[in-house]
Amino acid sequence: MLSLTVEQRSWMHRLPVWLKLLLLCLFTLVLWPLADWRLLLASCLPVVLLYASAGRYFAKLGAQRLKPVVYLVAIIFIYQVVTGRIEEGLAICLKIIATVSLANLVTMTSRLDDMMAVIETLAKPFHALGLPPRALGFAMGLVIRFTPLFLQRGTQLNQAWRARSPRRTSPRLLVPLALSAIDDADRVAEALKARGGLQNTKTKETQSDSAPQ
């Protein structure tokens, strides 16, 4: 779901990020109480049109990035069918597809630092509670940045496995995957530190000195 921003530009890249997030928020709020699958199917139309307006490449990429959601939706739908609630199942699935696609579109058309700035602004009220807004924005940015890398790491480990074993990859690979994620986290922490990282904010006082050495 957390797709990388796309190199190819579109008119939506020029919209301010806060506006896009606000529209996404409104869209989700409007959709959520709806229960009629016909209405929800119609609500997918503007999303499809938005993708299409950015060009064929964009639409194709959007469809590709929906793939992980499709599995989830399929499971939900099967469950609903089994329990005899076909119409409700259809409604929930369409809701998920519409909102996730729109959220993907916002991510694809927004710069990471702009997104982080919005989150920082929103998080300001929580500063009094001890939550450093900059760290929060940073954390979200890092998730978006490193999720694809994490998936890539999974692919690499899978290849390393298959290069030396005829069997399918086993769940044993989860351990090295987790370890390498921790390892990567250490390296990112180092890289952040090397360029000043979060040092100039309040986080310096609230965080312990557990940075990797």
Binding site: Q156, L157, A160, W161, A163, R164, S165, P166, P176, L179
Partner: peptide, 23 residues
């Protein structure tokens, strides 16, 4: 034929951290 394949060809990855799986 992956079973035969691993007897036939070995791949050394660019980065050892991408190849080493075990602790």
């Amino acid at each position: 034929d992956r079973k035969k394949a691993i007897e036939t060809i070995g791949l050394i990855f660019q980065n050892p951290d991408h190849q080493i799986i075990f602790p």
